[in-house]
């Protein structure tokens, strides 16, 4: 695995001067993942915060080739790029290895872009799809998505007098990707650069479709001080609200927190969950804790027992 000093010798894939919010996690996802590639990369991005804020004409923050097509089609668009690359390679017009990386937010990945993503994964293109997951449609102003967790306040499922934010549990896209039987699926956070860059390095070392679902706190939509972005991501991991794990050729490898913290430690610092701490919502909080525990248990059961105790 490349050390930080080594990574720091590589060309930064993003320049400053983009218009993401101060403390935004999305460019951190991009930098940590793309810096892990020792080979050149080509990027496709779905419409979303990342795309809009990094490419306001005539200013592009991308130091690597970048293509934006539309919202729901990053998977398909990258399929076309990769197919053309394979064609040129076959014809001897190009020999350089390139890592193809598609970025989409959770809206563009869990919801509107799910079909395009699924198709790209099923067809086996040699690409890495990265979901920078901030658990709502942040670009349009914090609307609920299939990735929004239960109880979160969003502008299309707001907390009100008779409602406590999102009613449904979020769907488990990472497991949907695992079910595609692709060679590598990872779920991670931006609060642990060494884990994330290692996962990205692994993804880039594997030929075929790879999927990474990276939790990326959004200071605007989640409501917290901008300097807490990485800290909150780590709390999601430490409470198992967002398990960190990878599945390589069907084999699960789970990162376990030293001590599993109560989920309220993760929820409490966020404005989007503030209403849950009003008197009368204790049952809902208990419900969220129970679901986190259930899903964590279910995930642990997927990991094959290992020889010895070493993790």
């Amino acid at each position: 695995m490349a050390s930080l000093k080594e990574l720091a010798t590589r060309k930064d894939p993003l320049t400053g001067g983009h218009r993401m919010c101060p403390g935004c996690g999305a460019p951190i996802v991009v930098r940590q993942i793309l810096l892990a590639s020792k080979d050149p990369v080509v990027v496709v991005s779905a419409t979303g915060c990342l795309e809009v804020s990094t490419t306001i004409f005539p200013y592009s923050a991308w130091n690597v080739p970048f293509l934006h097509n539309a919202f729901e089609n990053a998977g398909a668009t990258m399929s076309g790029v990769e197919a053309a690359y394979q064609n040129f390679k076959k014809k001897g017009k190009i020999d350089q290895h390139i890592n193809f990386v598609a970025f989409g937010g959770d809206g563009g990945t869990y919801d509107i872009g799910l079909q395009s993503l699924s198709g790209a994964m099923e067809r086996g293109h040699d690409l890495t799809y990265v979901c920078y997951n901030n658990e709502a449609y942040m670009n349009t102003g914090v609307q609920r998505s299939g990735a929004t967790p239960r109880g979160a306040n969003t502008t299309t499922e707001p907390a009100g007098k008779v409602s406590q934010g999102k009613v449904q549990w979020r769907k488990d896209l990472t497991e949907i990707m695992v079910a595609h039987n692709i060679p590598y699926v990872a779920q991670g956070i931006i609060g642990n650069w060494s884990d994330l860059t290692r996962k990205a390095e692994k993804a880039f070392s594997i030929r075929g479709p790879k999927f990474m679902n990276i939790l990326q706190p959004c200071r605007l939509g989640w409501g917290y001080r901008p300097d807490a972005t990485l800290e909150l991501a780590r709390l999601a991991f430490e409470t198992c609200a967002w398990p960190v794990y990878e599945v390589e050729n069907g084999v699960y490898k789970i990162s376990k927190p030293k001590e599993k913290k109560p989920v309220i430690e993760y929820l409490k610092p966020q404005d989007r969950f503030r209403h849950l701490f009003k008197p009368g919502n204790e049952a809902l909080l208990a419900d969220i804790q129970a679901e986190v525990d259930r899903r964590w248990g279910q995930l642990l059961a997927k990991e094959a027992p290992r020889q010895g105790s070493g993790q």
Binding site: A76, S79, G80, E82, G119, R123
Partner: peptide, 28 residues
């Protein structure tokens, strides 16, 4: 033919893939 044929999962993806491929300079 020498073509790389992408049997996509919808026409939306067909045109999306065409855009991606064409942006590389390929004949699509």
């Amino acid at each position: 033919v020498d073509t790389n044929f992408v049997a996509v999962e919808s026409e939306h993806s067909a045109m999306s893939a065409c855009v991606g491929a064409s942006a590389t300079g390929a004949r699509v």
